[in-house]
Write a protein that binds this DNA or RNA. Structure first.
Lengths: 204, 204
DNA sequence: ACCTGAACACCGTTCAAGT
DNA sequence: ACCTGAACACCGTTCAAGT
């Protein structure tokens, strides 16, 4: 709290405005497909003006990735509190897939991953997101072990790695050859998570 | 067989030479990071010459993707013949992960996926690869059901979708926050596949 | 103080001109 | 016949000049 709270658009809301415009453009044409001119037009300002608020195109991606982390935090919330963390993880997976097929999802597209390979700031932002997801899922599985709903011999860290890779893969996937219904994929995912994580003896 | 078999470099070997040079450049700097000038330099020819053999930068990716499909076919071979298709799938997964962590792998990077979102030819090439993988894994699981090593109630198509998404995710992943050993990931993957696919009653 | 938009150094691609 | 490399239309980014 250093200065502001005026009626004129401040730095932060300007940045949000630009990020929102950019997100529209990226969704339409991808990160490299959308030009700065497009983004400027969509945001209703000139190139020079935009560069007052973001030092580069990549910096816009970083801002979007950071916003995405907040929305993930919301999505992951139930994992922390649920009475049955494994059931909550299955539920989360179902929501995730539905959101993915809706196209409602924000933007963890292949484009962004590709940019991360070249730009250290983007890479760092995505790694923060991945670390957050990893930690949250890890905590849920450990708690599941304490509660007896997760196999106590499961290698939780390695399992998380796979589960998150699966999530990433579902994000970037090309529809798939056959057109499977969301329900069938959701069902299969729940079966996979259940069988993979539950204690070896039991059926629940 | 229309014309050739001379000592001078023919069309096909020229194309291979360019594709190899491009692959080196892409590995170094990614698809967008590598300029055509870089590729020309690496291949030892001018821009005009290169464009005699490939109509665009994207066309080079398509050629690489097609070569990758052949190498996948080789990798998937055991699935078709193995006495235990589920065991063969686990083995394939282990090889896949090791190859991934070696950096030995060809190029199903985020870059290429990103390009597919914008270029229909690249997209078509990747879809051919995905369809091939999907069909092969599907056949293996169906055969596993016949042989009694795979749960007869498993939704094979949906399971394949998840397994291939997992493979894609492992390809594009950013190392992961913690540095897990390949062995632990391999072990977890085998557990996951085994528990997911085997008949519900049994242990083998 | 803040914005504009032409200018800069690049990119992928083309094509007149060379050999 | 095949190749060269300057030229073209773009891109992300900058910065003199305006208000």
């Amino acid at each position: 709290m250093a200065s502001d709270s005026k009626a004129v658009p401040d730095q932060a809301s300007r940045r949000r405005q630009i990020a929102r415009a950019a997100l529209n453009c990226f969704r339409r044409s991808g990160f490299h497909g959308a030009s700065m001119q497009d983004i400027c037009a969509e945001a209703g300002m000139s190139a020079g003006a935009l560069y007052r608020y973001f030092p580069s195109k990549a910096a816009i991606i970083v801002a979007i990735a950071e916003a995405e982390r907040e929305s993930h935090a919301l999505m992951f919330q139930p994992l922390e509190e649920a009475a049955d963390p494994l059931a909550a993880l299955q539920e989360l997976g179902a929501n995730f897939i539905r959101q993915q097929l809706d196209g409602t999802s924000e933007l963890l597209t292949a484009d962004v991953l590709a940019e991360a390979a070249r730009n250290p700031d983007v890479k760092a932002a995505l790694e923060r997101n991945a670390a957050f997801a990893h930690e949250t899922v890890t905590r849920a599985l450990l708690r599941g072990q304490d509660l007896g709903v997760v196999d106590p011999d499961l290698d939780v860290a390695a399992a998380c790695h796979l589960i998150i890779a699966l999530g990433d893969g579902l994000c970037t996937q090309l529809g798939g050859p056959a057109q499977l219904s969301a329900d069938r994929i959701v069902q299969a995912l729940q079966t996979m998570l259940q069988r993979f994580c539950r204690p070896v003896g039991g059926r629940a």
